[in-house]
Design a protein around this nucleic acid. Structure first.
Length: 605
RNA sequence: GGGGUCGUAGUUCAGUUGGUUAGAACGCCGGCCUGUCACGCCGGAGGUCGCGAGUUCGAGUCUCGUCGGCCCCGCCA
């Protein structure tokens, strides 16, 4: 028993037989309601006990209303008030009154009025909560996750979930108006070889066999197109058993879409409208559309990543040709080994201390670089341990290529092309943040297009699909299947917002022959293709419409809309970085009987 | 699999060069208080310093291991 006061037991039992009704929510009453007899129910947000007079802030999702418990109005209610504690649920009936002059609380929407309780009862008691339910103070992540239901009462999470709901409703309204049908697809489905690791669900009725939870409804939405549904969408959970990040949870939500008889342009227009509706619903922001396009190659060359953050400059530049003229061994060796020298200008970086430079270098090394070369551009000239290996004319050329001016720092990575992108791309982001170059209020959308179709996987010694195996190559590139698959471009598009990939999709392959060629390019043999995707290949033999689609990361979009650092903050019950649920303690062991029924044996060796 | 960072009261955090009895704020408990709204005032309780081992005369502090939260690389659209 956790009652603070035994005298309340009767109240509690009695209250189970009364109607826990309310006439208004705690955020509803205004001066215009003065004189009304109302009943409120809510959590005791705060109690200010003056002895003879008690004020209670009653809180629900909709707001806070001050209830006054005055012995002259109702002695029993006033007596009860002394027993109230934080997070008790209180039902109070009474008259709405304008507050006395000078006591209006401007900070509350309901601050002009208060309710004089003529009857009050405790509906539910509460242990002292592990943290104070208040806007300002934030408990640590672990505490928030364990007591998620209390965190929800604190405000920010409730508002995030509310916004998420509005975003979803806007999406549904918009897509419905455009003739999309929301169709559900199976959660227990077939494991697919490409892509992320699957979550598996053992089948009791087929011992030894497994369902997989969908990484996305990809194949089903294509089958819906073959089925003539024409325009499909679904707000749907997807599952990928990979390591977590701030923007990655093992189960996450997509706004998944697919359309028949469309090209890239039409998909983008529909998406721009959709995103526009969601931003309007969430933040009353009108977006500039259409969003600009950038090619994958451009994004990589200028920003080092395929999801460029365009809110600030600091673009990368290749300086291999100029670097070839220097005597610096590191650069020469990298170039001789087929690598490249890339660099960027850091605004104001000439003022960096030795320690600053050391930190940046360590960061680059942590990101996979062998080292980081730097040259300060000062009013007097170039200042750097490696400047002596360069002729001044060469340095001038490099400075010009990077767009560096006096007071800036030039940094360089000499490595393989890929490693150079990775290091400088990440360094650009981190320096951009640290130097305050990023305007947090900006919303910078860009479509990344012209992705390569395939990427050579050194480990597996074969090509893998950059997007997925059902992405159509550009028609003019199809001949390259036989000659140079690595050069093929995909009919794919990613939508990037502020350096975060919020959606990606493609025009799909709808011809059996092309799909066969694709599998061949991926070294998926005919037998394996038939076993894994036979149903799709067969469907393509029955009049498959050309189609394409996209999936948006709802969690990421909501995180950006609320300014959250992590998608955890827009998910009601998220998991920790180790993929655990601190609230339910999942995953957990199961009874031996359950394993036996499924024909499973544990082997943790 | 790897790198970084954090773990001290219910919560958020401080704790010096290894040294006596580990502190603060909020919260909690008791008392007083009829216009507060982060109410105020008086008093009080509350600690396995994540866990384990080691170094030391002595460990919250140093070392190793381990568990957990967070960020990142790998992985993943």
């Amino acid at each position: 028993m956790f009652y603070n006061n035994n005298l309340l037991v009767n109240e509690v039992v009695m209250s189970d037989f009364t109607r826990h009704a309310r006439t208004h929510t705690c955020g509803q009453l205004r001066a215009a309601d003065e004189g009304k007899e109302v009943t409120l129910v809510g959590w005791v947000h705060r109690r200010r006990d003056h002895g003879g007079l008690v004020f209670v802030d009653l809180r629900d999702r909709f707001g806070v209303t001050q209830v006054v418990l005055n012995p002259q109005i109702d002695a029993a209610a006033h007596e009860l008030a002394h027993a109230l504690r934080a997070e008790f649920i209180l039902q109070a009936r009474g008259k709405v009154s304008h507050r006395p002059a000078g006591t209006v609380n401007e900070k509350l929407d309901t601050g002009e009025i208060e309710v004089y309780a003529d009857h009050a009862q405790i509906i539910s008691q509460s242990k002292t909560p592990p943290f104070v339910i208040e806007e300002g103070e934030t408990p640590s992540e672990a505490v928030k996750l364990k007591y998620r239901y209390l965190e929800m009462r604190r405000g920010p999470l409730a508002r995030a979930l509310e916004m998420r709901h509005r975003v979803c409703m806007a999406a549904r309204r918009y897509l419905d108006a455009l003739g999309f049908l929301e169709v559900e697809t199976p959660m227990l489905t077939k494991s697919t070889p490409e892509g992320a690791r699957d979550f598996l669900a053992p089948s009791r009725l087929s011992p030894g066999k497994f369902f997989a939870l969908p990484q996305s409804p990809q194949l089903f939405k294509q089958l819906l197109m073959v089925g003539g549904m024409d325009r499909y969408f679904q707000i749907v959970k997807c599952f990928r058993d990979e390591d977590l990040r701030a923007d990655r949870q093992p189960e996450f939500t997509q706004i998944d879409m697919e359309m028949s008889f469309v090209d890239e342009e039409e998909v983008r227009r529909v998406c721009e409208g959709l995103i526009g509706e969601m931003f309007m619903a969430a933040r009353a922001i009108k977006l500039d559309t259409p969003f600009p396009l950038i090619s994958y190659a451009d994004a990589m060359n200028r920003f080092g990543v395929d999801r460029p953050d365009l809110r600030f400059g600091m673009e990368l530049a290749g300086v291999s040709a100029l670097a070839a003229q220097c005597e610096f061994k590191v650069f020469k060796d990298a170039l001789a080994g087929g690598g490249a020298v890339r660099g960027m200008a850091v605004p104001g970086g000439a003022a960096f201390s030795r320690k600053d430079l050391e930190d940046i270098t360590n960061e680059a090394i942590q990101l996979g670089a062998k080292g980081l070369a730097w040259i300060k551009v000062t009013g007097e000239g170039y200042q750097s341990p490696i400047a002596k290996f360069f002729q001044t004319a060469t340095l001038d050329g490099i400075r010009e290529a990077l767009g560096a001016g006096a007071g800036d720092l030039m940094v360089f990575v000499a490595d393989s092309v890929k490693a150079g992108y990775a290091v400088l791309g990440a360094l650009r982001l981190s320096l951009g943040h640290r130097l305050g170059l990023i305007d947090g209020a900006k919303l910078n959308f860009v479509w990344v297009v012209d992705f390569p179709l395939l990427e050579y996987d050194e480990e597996e010694k074969r090509y893998v699909a950059l997007h997925h195996p059902f992405t159509s190559p550009k028609l003019e590139d199809i001949a390259l299947f036989d000659t140079d698959p690595g050069k093929m471009r995909a009919r794919a598009y990613d939508l990037v917002l502020n350096g975060s990939e919020i959606g990606g999709g493609s025009i799909r392959i709808h011809q059996r022959e092309v799909q066969d060629m694709m599998f061949r390019a991926l070294s998926i043999g005919p037998d394996e293709a038939r076993e894994k995707f036979g149903f799709l290949l067969e469907a393509f033999e029955f009049g498959a419409p050309p189609h394409g689609g996209i999936a948006f990361g709802l969690d990421r979009i909501c995180a950006i809309l609320t300014g959250a650092e992590s998608i955890r903050d827009v998910i009601a019950f998220p998991k920790t970085q180790k993929g655990a649920c601190l609230l339910t303690d999942a995953p957990s062991e199961v009874a031996p009987r359950q394993l036996k029924e499924l024909g499973l044996k544990r082997d943790l060796s």
